[in-house]
Design a binder for these strands. Sequence first.
DNA 1: CTTTGTGAAATTATTCACAGCA
DNA 2: TGCTGTGAATAATTTCACAAAG
Lengths: 229, 229
Amino acid sequence: MGLHSVHMPGRTRIPKPTAQRLSLYLRELNGRSTDKRPTVSSKQLGAAVGLTDTQVRKDLACFGQFGRPGVGYDVASLRERLREIVGTHRQWRAAVVGIGNIGRALLSYRRFREEGFEIVAIFDQAPGLVGTRTGGLTVQPLTKLREVIQREGVSIGVIAVPPEAAQEVANALVAAGVRGLLNFAPRRLDLKTGVPTVDVDFTGALEKLAFEVGETNSNRLLVRKGKRS
Amino acid sequence: MGLHSVHMPGRTRIPKPTAQRLSLYLRELNGRSTDKRPTVSSKQLGAAVGLTDTQVRKDLACFGQFGRPGVGYDVASLRERLREIVGTHRQWRAAVVGIGNIGRALLSYRRFREEGFEIVAIFDQAPGLVGTRTGGLTVQPLTKLREVIQREGVSIGVIAVPPEAAQEVANALVAAGVRGLLNFAPRRLDLKTGVPTVDVDFTGALEKLAFEVGETNSNRLLVRKGKRS
DNA sequence: CTTTGTGAAATTATTCACAGCA
DNA sequence: TGCTGTGAATAATTTCACAAAG
């Protein structure tokens, strides 16, 4: 099988949808006891996350071949492999900027740590908050952002400030050296540099839901196609 | 122009990516003062949300024609139109189940109400929480879920419970009559019926980010394509 | 018989290119 | 000129179908 595929280090581009699905697979694999069923087939894995078997195989095939025909994938080793690919195998040091409702919720969200993301610094602008302690950390003023980010070796910045402040905070974080941003502010961030950003937009999610509810429930009267007035 | 397109009420299917982008357009339009610049071109709108002008036009064209050649789109009326399409023009009554960190953050998230989503009931299982008040609402026990949902006319259920409980809560909400689910629990929900679900997955977002950071930063050593061992 | 990995086909989404209106 | 709306072309993604392996 390996006889003729001598293309070693020229990895093929990963389709965006595939990258998205990686965390679904990982989540499912993490939830599986490796004892009772040491292997999983693409069909089982697909069913668990709501995809076809073919889709699962195509996705995994982007990263190499680690299944065994007639058997399936070894749960433990596939999990390890995916962890490496996603990057959860290493420890990520993160900073949260904005200690409002969302910021606080993130601080006490246990799961982050379990997946390798450790929040090591928190910032806020409000004089009333600076200096107080939350979740074992002291709220730092924004003026110390650069200093703290660099001292603590933070590589992931989490933006939980109001939308008006988001771009400015993003700029500061990038200037301080973070390598990726998780953005909870409902606005688009412009980053010239190649700093990846992932948006989490509650309102957007609700709107998507409202739209789908509208679509499923009444496919009438929603839109009248054609010129109006 | 309308001379030969007599297909009135048979609306064309909306591509999923288009549906996703609707909330981006809406967000941008909401942020525009309608006074100084009453119109916006597809190019401007696209630039604001990070898309091409063609993409914007194609998306909007799914719902009809409301731009004017040489001029652009009237901000106010496009906004209204999009609100109708997305469903934000009407009021949505929502219930939050699970008053932990995330649940509480959602309760004080002002923007929901601004977009037409009103939280009118909250539930939790913990005896210590039931009966306490948060954000003007009294925490109800899960045993009263059906009764309260129906009495309050709730149509959107928000799931903010631990993943183990999520499926059960989802079933109960659907049985009680909600028409859509917003799921913050990191697991997939199985709904036989056509009840749309939108997932918000913090950890998934962080993993997506970790993956992208890994991709941009070091395109070496991440993956060795080919059989291993 | 089961299940992987993968080209080829089908489907879906984006971009191009341009006619037509203001 | 500036801009929309839209078919046609291109690109991306998913699904099919099957050879090869356990």
